[in-house]
Amino acid sequence: MGFFSKKKQSSSVAKDRLKLVLIHDRANCNTELLEMMKQEIIDVISRYMEIDEKGLEINLGTTSSEYENGIVPALYANIPIRNMRAPAKRT
């Protein structure tokens, strides 16, 4: 049983990687662009709250769309929040 579970896990990982590559290709979003967006998201959110950057996950996935007649790329973010920041005073 252990032999088959390892093979299934390996094939599952490969399938997930292939899906990710296809999603990135369809969204026309390379790794460098995704990292740039991730850093900008961190910069903006950090103005309003203290976040746990080590736990931050930003990924491309898919979602359904009535406008595109099917599946379209979607940006998903999991951003652990440590504390809210006090609002900055405007001058």
Rank of each mutant, 00 (worst) to 15 (best):
L20H: 14
I79M: 04
I79A: 03
K15G: 03
A88I: 08
E32Y: 11
S46Y: 03
S11P: 00
G70F: 00
A74L: 09
L20N: 14
N69I: 03
G70M: 05
E68D: 08
S12I: 01
N28W: 06
E40L: 02
I45T: 15
K89G: 10
A27F: 00
I45V: 15
Y48E: 08
S12P: 00
S12Q: 14
M49S: 05
Y48R: 05
K19Q: 07
T31A: 14
L75R: 04
V21D: 14
S12R: 11
E57K: 14
S12W: 09
N78A: 12
L75Y: 06
H24N: 15
E40N: 07
K8D: 11
T91Q: 10
Y67P: 00
N30A: 00
T91I: 07
N83Q: 08
P73G: 01
P87Q: 07
F4D: 15
V72A: 06
K54D: 15
N59V: 13
N69C: 02
M84T: 02
M49P: 01
D25V: 10
F4W: 08
E35I: 04
N69Y: 10
L33S: 08
I81W: 06
I58T: 00
E53K: 13
R17C: 05
T31L: 12
E53P: 03
M49I: 01
R26N: 10
K6Y: 02
L22G: 14
N69P: 00
L75C: 03
S11H: 13
R17W: 09
D43A: 14
P73D: 04
M1G: 11
G2P: 02
P87G: 04
V21H: 09
S5Q: 08
T63L: 05
P87N: 01
H24G: 11
M37R: 02
L34F: 03
K54G: 09
D43S: 13
M36C: 04
R47D: 12
N30Y: 03
K89R: 12
S65D: 06
N83H: 07
S5F: 06
E53I: 12
F3R: 09
L56P: 01
R47M: 11
R85A: 06
H24R: 15
L33A: 15
I41T: 05
E66T: 12
A27S: 04
Y76D: 13
E32Q: 13
E32I: 14
N83R: 09
M1C: 08
E35A: 15
E35T: 06
N28A: 09
E50I: 10
M49Y: 02
L60C: 00
R17E: 15
T63A: 10
L56G: 01
D25F: 12
K6D: 09
S10A: 14
E32H: 11
Y48M: 05
A27T: 00
N78Y: 11
S65T: 03
M1V: 10
V21M: 11
I81A: 05
E50Q: 08
G70R: 01
L75M: 04
H24E: 15
N83A: 05
N78F: 11
K6N: 05
K54L: 13
T62M: 09
D25G: 12
